[in-house]
């Protein structure tokens, strides 16, 4: 009887773990929930959108669909990425639309217990507060969990 309860307890605990994909942007470690990611592609030159803000690199062709590519680094206020073949584009689905995010490289898939997620400590930049959902310690490094909805939707309305 007791053993059963214990087992189901474990199950619940196990189900609470969610998997995240970690990657680096401008030398910092970030991660996204694996369910938000549709695919990861090698970087190839994109088509520039005229009059676009600095963090919008342009558009690319994803199997016949035109999708915008954002430079995560520039978005987070870090230096602009010099995109090269070594970089990757993480295709995510935000607000029902596919969007590409440029990252330096993908690291690994990590399993996170929600209890281990710490709230973003207050920092000066309001943007950072909005864009980072929380932080987590993994292998002694700090991994930042991205709030995708805030990262993508907010600046899109500002665009001319």
């Amino acid at each position: 009887m007791q053993a059963e309860v214990k087992q189901s307890d474990q199950e619940v605990k196990h189900a609470e773990h969610s998997e995240f994909v970690s990657f680096t942007v401008a030398g910092q470690a970030f991660c996204l929930k694996i369910t938000q990611i549709r695919e990861i592609r090698r970087w190839s030159p994109v088509t520039i959108l005229p009059h676009a803000p600095a963090d919008v690199l342009g558009v690319m062709n994803l199997r016949g669909a035109v999708i915008p590519i954002y430079d995560l680094s520039a978005r987070f206020g870090l230096q602009q990425t010099e995109a090269s073949e070594r970089n990757v584009v993480i295709v995510v689905s935000v607000h029902g639309k596919p969007v590409g995010l440029l990252a330096e490289s993908v690291s690994e898939i990590i399993s996170i217990n929600p209890d281990d997620i710490q709230d973003t400590p207050p920092v000066d930049s309001r943007n950072t507060m909005e864009y980072i959902q929380g932080i987590i310690s993994h292998d002694d490094t700090m991994v930042r969990i991205i709030n995708l909805d805030a990262v993508i939707s907010a600046p899109e309305q500002v665009m001319p």
Binding site: L49, I67, Q157
Partner: peptide, 12 residues
């Protein structure tokens, strides 16, 4: 839906 209206560009 990809981006807002861009002056000078009609479509892609």
């Amino acid at each position: 839906g990809v981006c807002g209206e861009i002056p000078g560009v009609a479509a892609a």
